[in-house]
Amino acid sequence: MGFYNSPNLRKLTMDLLDFARGPALQVAALIFVAGLIWRLLHLFLTQKKTDISEARQSGSVGGGLRAIFSRFRHHEPFRKRTRNGTILAYTIHIGLAIVVLGSAPHILFIESFSGLGWSPMPNVVIHFAAALTLAALLTSLGRRMSHPVLKMLSNFDDYFTWLVTTLPVATGLMAVAHVGARYELLLAIHILSFNVFLIWFPFGKLMHSFIAIGSRYTTGVTFTRRGAKV
């Protein structure tokens, strides 16, 4: 009987898996939602300063909404100098979106609590996207540790956020490839790593997923009022 087939270990593994997708996930989701609400509420409760200068032009709300989308791409004069960072960022974000929203098990998971389901993407696409995302994440870490500007700016949040983002991708790939341990154990670790991701989300820079919308909108409104470039 091999090590991985020991009945005790199998039971332990199943217990861990049940824990990961049961109470651990519930607690993580609770912290995620509560933290998210508190962080956003804190911003909304902060005093709003109203701009009472005479606007050069109307349509500032439209300008704010446009800014949410236009800042997905740099203005032309900046593109050359920001190319590497932009390519890495897009690879990571698009790769994660494909893996999270395109893979069958993830869709089943989303369907289990939201009731929303859709057709999965082919496995080959998911696996390729996950591998590319992992490569981009590793490259981004190397870049963060070596680029003078990024190295100087980086703090615990940057590295820990990188870790909690990379672990689910790496463990997911390992589980699919059955590399390193039993599938159930790898799956349990994958789900646990996702739980850590959820718990960290409201505390660190992963919140940019929400706050960037407000930040872009605000700047869009301000500079549209002035008739300036957004």
């Binding site: 911003l43 900046f78 990024l150 949040d157 960037a212 407000g214 605000t218």
Partner: peptide, 11 residues
């Protein structure tokens, strides 16, 4: 909001 939004991308 600005203080909270930075991701240290360095761009």
């Amino acid at each position: 909001t600005y203080m909270e939004a930075c991701v240290h991308c360095g761009q």
